[in-house]
Amino acid sequence: MRSELEVNGARVAWEHEPHEFLTEVLRREGLKGTKRGCESGDCGACAVLLDGEEVPSCLVLAAQAHGHAVETIEGVGSFEAPHPIQEAFLDATAIQCGYCTPGMVLATKALLAETPNPTEADARACLAGHLCRCTGYVKPIQAVLSAAQRCQAGAQ
């Protein structure tokens, strides 16, 4: 079957099977920053933004995304111009193995769009669905708070 959607700002029409989830199709189309960690919605590694809302792409059939806008980590920042959220994760050394990082960065982006001045509790809640065995979450929580400050500073 065929689904038409917007991915990182570009309109695409993708052929896929009815049983395929968005994670599989994104990865097949080359967007490999979306990671497979559990395929049950519990780990956050496959998170993408669907119409701006964070969702686990392993629980979204590709067909369900027809007519919607998807943002993946490939749509956030570049080597030349990293997003302030990415800069915050770098400077906090909040990245160890990096498998959870794309999901955490996207979750932070969704959080800051709604809550530009998050509390520490907001930062923890934002990362609650993102499992990470490396960092113990301490530095990622700091990174989310620092990202908020950087985004605020950039907006002014």
Partner: peptide, 23 residues
Amino acid sequence: RNQRRVDALKLALGKGTFSDDID
């Protein structure tokens, strides 16, 4: 010294290539 990790930027960008990231 706390320097930016040499591998962190590519990971933050989702460009780290893990074992499964090849076709």
